[in-house]
């Protein structure tokens, strides 16, 4: 079986819980240190997963998003005690709203990157394995839909190439003609997908879908390493939860910036969160080093 990375080869429950924990912390905490840790590890993990292709999303997707959020927030929010200057509308430009914009941008980018990593690691078969028993219909529909999008795109490319071969090119020629050709291609693919849906339905029916409870073939085993990882996740989750409840992760931007930063317990929580965030990258690195070492031993 092909996995995204070494962490992806862990049991799906471990993968899923890991991402749930990361999403919860990244979305709920406003603490800048946690946001920076989250963003930094998300970038690192995404690069580990995608290699050079990661640069595309990072530079074209995440960076503009970050900049836009940073600029937009102080233009519309004027709360905060530290006034820097007055905007032409007569409302103040405040330091707090700028920093809040930065934090919001970092949070948004980090969560988007974590979702990108999530979709790489939690493949649709893992998803069906996790939710097949709890919500069978939902997970089937979801996995079919998720599969449909890349399939539709591939079919579209295929049809376009064939059409281009006999003169209905969508990349050359006058604009109006190109649009007409593209619409024709699109109509062909839509027809194909409907036909395909009917075929799928027939195929499912002929295999007895709905007559009895479905079983799914899966090869996931809960090993010793999964147990260790799960224990670590539970520990981190509880530790962060306690930290949050006890007010050691407090941070606010308005009306003035107040929060915990240098208290020993906060630093400890930050450290634990950092370890949690770079866990997949660490597992990857360790696996790679182990592999390299065993190769050297054999040769």
């Amino acid at each position: 079986m092909q996995y995204a990375d070494a962490f992806g080869s862990y049991h799906p429950i471990v993968n899923f819980l890991y991402f749930c924990l990361i999403f919860a912390v990244s979305m709920l905490l406003q603490h800048p240190v946690f946001l920076l840790i989250s963003l930094f590890s998300a970038i690192w993990y995404y690069i580990t997963l995608k290699g050079r292709k990661a640069a595309g999303l990072l530079l074209r997707g995440i960076l503009p998003l970050l900049l836009i959020t940073v600029i937009i927030n102080p233009a519309f929010s004027h709360a905060g005690q530290t006034r820097l200057c007055y905007l032409p509308t007569g409302n103040p430009l405040t330091l707090e709203s700028i920093l809040y914009g930065c934090a919001a941008g970092i949070m948004l980018s980090a969560i988007l990157l974590w979702f990108a990593c999530f979709s790489e690691v939690i493949t649709s078969d893992k998803f069906v394995y996790l939710f097949g028993r709890i919500i069978p219909a939902m997970s089937l529909v979801l996995s079919m839909t998720l599969r449909f999008v890349p399939r539709f795109k591939a079919q579209f490319d295929h049809v376009r190439e064939v059409q281009a071969a006999f003169g209905r090119d969508t990349s050359n020629g006058p604009l109006l003609k190109r649009i007409r050709n593209a619409v024709a291609c699109f109509s062909i693919v839509v027809t194909w997908s409907m036909e395909n849906a009917l075929e799928t339905a027939d195929s499912m029916k002929s295999r007895g879908y709905g007559t009895a409870r479905r079983t799914a073939y899966s090869i996931y085993r809960f090993e010793e390493r999964d147990k260790t990882a799960l224990c670590f996740l539970i520990f981190c989750g509880l530790f962060l939860l306690c930290g949050g409840i006890s007010g050691n992760l407090y941070w606010r931007f308005f009306p003035n910036i107040r929060g915990t930063l240098t208290q020993p317990i906060t630093v400890m929580l930050e450290f634990v969160y950092l370890i949690l965030c770079i866990m997949p990258v660490y597992i990857d690195r360790r696996e790679a080093a182990f592999w390299k070492k065993s190769l050297q031993l054999n040769s």
């Binding site: 800048p32 240190v33 920076l36 003035n256 910036i257 107040r258 929060g259 930063l261 240098t262």
Partner: peptide
């Protein structure tokens, strides 16, 4: 950011 904020956040 840490140095910047530490002036009064504590």
């Amino acid at each position: 950011i840490g140095a910047f904020c530490s002036c009064d956040i504590n």
